[in-house]
Amino acid sequence: MGTVNKGADIENIIEVKDLHYRYKDDTHALKGISLSVPKGSRTALVGPNGAGKSTLLLHLNAINLPQQGSIKVAGIEVSPATEKEIRNKVGLVFQDPDDQVFAMTAWDDVAFGPLNMGLGRDEVKSRVEDALKLVGMWEFKDKAPHHLSFGQKKRVAIAGVVAMDPEVIILDEPTAYLDPGGQDVLMEILAGFHKRGKTILLATHDMDLAAEWADRIIVIKSGRTLAEGGKELLVNKDIVSQANLRLPIVAQIFSRLPEFTRDTLPYTVDEAVKAIRKISQKG
């Protein structure tokens, strides 16, 4: 068992320190990355393709184990001895649901995790039903995954994670390949999880998604952390440029107006509406 923080409240539910990881083909994916995820936060991990986002996520629920450096989840250090415990605390939703949804029916797929946790039949049944209803897939419980759309399979994958009742839910590029309606449904589901007290971490290079959704930002590039903090990082042109990203669309528009500085730039739709009303009132 790992060392557990005895404090009543763990401020950072995830702590990564000087983490390195090199694949067998000698690709050095993580190069001493350090970061933290506050408990109860909505954290966006942003960075370009190849930044190491997916590799990092695989470490956070012990699919990959540290080769150098350390990771703690809820005060428990990730190690071969704590793999199962960590996976019960951290649920990971892959970018492609076909990598995750594999059972004969949606019901069987969602039940897989709880059954492997050793839960009783009644508890498994209750968790599966609740999870499928939560993501709007109850009516498809007896459907084979290959008869579901991409978005529906993604919701089943999320339900499979939710049914295990983890403290942290991690999603890798969650809106990839979803149409706008599917993206809206997904974000409503995540909002519901957050209201239940879950910590949510999503990896994305979609700066607009990060601006609208997150309350904490971690920027990485080439296997290292460039910056971590509040959403103001999304309109820091130096950091955004270093990360080969771009400002959120709203911020791009308002950055061309002389009335706005980096400190006053809106970067969500609601903030843009308020800024426009303020300008119109002055006129």
Rank of each mutant, 00 (worst) to 15 (best):
N12A: 13
I13H: 04
E15Y: 07
E15F: 05
E15N: 12
I33V: 15
S36F: 06
P38I: 09
S41L: 01
R42G: 03
G50R: 11
A51R: 04
K53P: 00
T55I: 06
I63Y: 10
N64A: 06
Q68R: 15
S70I: 01
I76L: 15
E77H: 02
E77T: 09
K84V: 15
I86L: 13
V90I: 10
G91C: 10
G91D: 08
L92N: 09
F94M: 12
D99P: 04
F102R: 02
W107H: 14
A111F: 06
G113K: 13
E123D: 14
V124T: 11
V128F: 10
D130I: 02
H147C: 06
G151W: 10
Q152A: 08
K153M: 13
V161Y: 02
E167V: 05
V168D: 01
D172A: 03
A176L: 04
P180L: 00
G181K: 13
V185R: 05
A191V: 00
A191N: 11
K195F: 03
G197C: 10
L201M: 14
L202I: 11
M207Q: 01
M207R: 02
D208C: 01
I220K: 00
T225P: 04
G230V: 10
E232R: 07
N236R: 12
L247Y: 05
L247F: 07
P248D: 04
I253C: 01
F254N: 08
S255W: 03
S255H: 10
L257W: 13
F260P: 14
T261K: 14
R262E: 15
Y267K: 05
A272T: 00
A275R: 15
R277D: 10
